[in-house]
Simulated assay, not measured.
Amino acid sequence: MKTVRKLSFPLAYKTIVLTLILTMIFHICILIGVIPYDIVWGGRLDTQAKMILFEIISLVINSIILLFVFMKKEVVKPFLSIKIINVFIWLFAVIFLLNTIGNLFASNSLETIIFTPLTLILTICMVRMAIERKT
């Protein structure tokens, strides 16, 4: 944890927010057809209907993560206790770690090359946010 603490809380926060916003823009581009959907979800999406469902789910999840990050930073007034917010931030860190592992096995090499380091960075930043006592 000492190594993670070397990462400043403001930098972790800004990195998460920027990454999530860019990720959401990316998923919107997939939804509207600017980016082909065969380069995401491990290359396993085989129909337009599945793509729409998965991309909407992704946008909702990213929005929820962003809300919890904003509550932790108190950009949005927290409507949950800090303990619950921290539990969710730890949960997101675990999900990003699992996603990092999953990206290593993606059938699309572009997904592996781009999203593996990205989700690893998000994992580290989420852990940094979770261990922060004050914002």
Results as ranks from 00 to 15, higher is better:
T3W: 07
V4W: 00
L7Y: 01
F9L: 07
P10S: 04
L11P: 01
A12W: 02
A12Y: 02
I16V: 00
V17H: 03
T19P: 02
T19F: 03
T23C: 04
I28A: 03
C29D: 06
L31I: 11
G33H: 03
I35P: 06
P36S: 01
P36C: 01
P36E: 01
P36D: 04
P36F: 04
I39R: 06
V40Y: 03
G43M: 02
L45S: 07
A49L: 03
K50S: 06
K50R: 13
K50N: 09
M51G: 01
E55F: 10
S58Y: 04
S58I: 06
L59R: 13
L59I: 11
L59P: 12
I61E: 05
S63L: 12
S63D: 08
I65D: 04
I65K: 09
L66V: 04
L67N: 12
V69M: 00
K73V: 07
K73T: 06
E74I: 10
P78N: 07
F79E: 12
L80A: 14
L80F: 15
I82P: 11
I82L: 10
I84K: 13
I85R: 11
V87S: 06
F88R: 11
F88L: 10
F88I: 12
F92P: 13
A93E: 08
A93P: 15
V94T: 15
L97C: 15
L98P: 13
N99H: 15
N103G: 12
S107D: 13
S107M: 15
L110M: 08
L110P: 10
E111D: 15
I114A: 08
I121P: 12
T123I: 05
T123Y: 02
V127A: 05
R128I: 08
R128E: 04
A130H: 05
R133V: 01
